[in-house]
Amino acid sequence: MFAVSYGLLGLVSGPLVVLTAFSITRREPIPWKPANTTSLAASVFLGSSLTYVVLVAPQAAGLLAWLLIVGTVLALVDWTCHLLPHKVVGALFLGGLALISAEAFVLRDFGPLLRAGVASVVVFVAGVLLYQRFAAELGFGDVTLAAALALYLGRFGWECVVLGLTAGLLLIWIVIQTLLIAKRVGRHDPVALGPAFLSGTAYVILQA
């Protein structure tokens, strides 16, 4: 029953995710139109993903559900117009912080919460330093997203922080090489980093 509830949540969230991403990329109010192919694909993806999350990692179902739903909005926007809106990244961060904090109070174990916060700060500081050095290749939205994802990964340990961000960088490298081989981008063309970072984070948490 728990898995069914999360599956239904994913199915319902699909159109809302696509419409929200559309609104951000077009800078227009959310257009409440009938579901299209993209909305259907998002519903299938989120419905199946959230069901899988509950079955594989029930202890982290809520955290992963928020990561997947908000993360899908960010992935769609970043892939479409190379933008990671601070408001959406902030929603990802604050939602994760609220869920991790609630868990800490319920279990009376504040270690994971403290570790998650420190991980986020460390990654943010490191990201800012990299941004100052590689501003042409690295957007500040990528820095804030990495810090938000470090919060999620830090909940499960420092090893997960390293593995999650490394997995994201590896996926980015694979995507860039694939696009270059297919001649879809040039060597100096911008490439969305958000989807790869989000995918790497979700994968590592599922393995934790």
Rank of each mutant, 00 (worst) to 15 (best):
I176A: 15
W158M: 13
R115F: 07
G14I: 01
F140S: 00
L206A: 07
N36V: 08
W173P: 00
A65V: 02
V70G: 03
G141Y: 04
L92S: 01
V70H: 05
G96F: 05
L55Q: 14
G96H: 03
S120N: 02
A196M: 14
I100A: 00
A202S: 12
A75I: 01
P85V: 05
L46P: 02
P34A: 08
V191T: 10
A182R: 14
F197Y: 15
G47I: 11
L84V: 08
S101N: 00
L193K: 14
A91P: 00
L114C: 02
H82C: 12
L114H: 07
R155T: 12
I176G: 11
A61E: 06
N36L: 10
L74Y: 04
V106P: 01
I181N: 04
F124T: 03
S101L: 06
L68D: 03
I100S: 01
P15S: 04
G139T: 06
G90D: 04
V118E: 04
L163H: 07
P34G: 09
Y52H: 13
E137G: 14
L16P: 07
W173E: 08
V89Q: 00
I174T: 07
G168S: 08
S13T: 04
A182Y: 12
I174N: 03
H188S: 15
S5R: 12
H82D: 14
L99G: 01
V89I: 09
T25D: 13
L9A: 10
V121S: 02
I205Y: 09
R187F: 15
S48A: 15
